[in-house]
Design a protein around this nucleic acid. Structure first.
Lengths: 174, 174
DNA sequence: TATTGTTATACTCTATAACTATA
DNA sequence: TATAGTTATAGAGTATAACAATA
């Protein structure tokens, strides 16, 4: 048992170690996602002429057939309102989504996938799923499960201002 | 023991399940990093007036005091050469990095942090580390370790065209 | 007054392709 | 010929702030 008086030093050391551990973890997480994201972004553009944000917006709507308001999309995608307007404009121009007026609040819209948008999304999503499966094919199923569970904890316990407001926890992982 | 003949069906089922598992994993990974990234991006901009790509470029250079060539930065950051030129231009204008001519190959440069750039990066990195530690403070150290290890495996076993060329495996996790 | 969504603006990132200089 | 890096260009994403319409 330790009797000399270095409790503060020890505490600081542990603190610093924890800081480093978290940073290492984050950098590794980031480099993994950047690698995958870069590949997916390129393929989505080359094969479907679509960008990741647009694909994401459609994915959000696919999970919410009843439609989502602009503000909700903004929160879920973590970008400001003006951007959602822009992305929605483009998708609407391509007839993939529609703005449905909200009957109860005339300031608001409900954005929905059109039938064509839903078809297009399903087609892209299937191919997208194959790409992902191929990329992760080097890992054992058991490890993927573990990783999934740990990431769920990250998502639950993450300390950010955003998580407080964020409602996107309900659904992902289709 | 199963004796009726559904091996193909079973295989397909397992395949589909694996596809779904991988997709679920990827979506969870993505939503975690997007949340953290959005927060970090905002804070870096507000507190230091810097963007994530610029911060990343400086981080690469900090790990390579001998300097990196434009092409290497391009590979490591997974963006095309023209972009590296642009980002480097801006950082050079702010006197944070310099292009040192390569004595052996007069087409090439070695990009390095200036002393001021190194100081600025260290200051930002320290604060950045605190942010990250704070965000991950809800998770136990043991879980962070597990997660780190699993992500290392992702990085190693990832099946993408990029990983073949990618040299960024040597270093991250300062 | 507060909220929903849009508009206007400025900046950055990104990819592509043509280009210069050097190897 | 091939390679290292730049330039030119076009298209998107992003944040901020001012704004209109509605609650």
């Amino acid at each position: 048992m330790k009797i000399d008086n270095e409790p503060i030093y020890d505490l600081e050391t542990r603190l610093t170690q924890d800081h480093h551990q978290s940073l290492r973890l984050w950098l590794r997480m980031l480099s993994c996602t950047v690698m995958i994201e870069a590949e997916i972004r390129t393929r989505l553009r080359n094969e479907f002429g679509i960008t990741l944000p647009r694909f994401d917006l459609m994915a959000q709507l696919e999970r919410h057939p009843e439609g989502l308001r602009m503000g909700e999309l903004s929160k879920r995608m973590m970008v400001t309102g003006g951007n959602i307007t822009g992305i929605t404009d483009q998708l609407e121009q391509e007839k993939l989504v529609v703005r449905m007026p909200d009957l109860k609040d005339r300031r608001a819209y409900s954005v929905k996938l059109t039938p064509a948008g839903r078809r297009a999304f399903k087609r892209m999503a299937a191919v997208h799923e194959d790409w992902i499966a191929e990329m992760f094919s080097g890992m054992a199923a058991e490890q993927k499960n573990q990783l999934f569970e740990l990431l769920s904890q990250v998502k639950t316990h993450l300390n950010t201002p955003a998580t407080a407001l964020d409602t996107s926890k309900e659904q992902d992982a289709s």
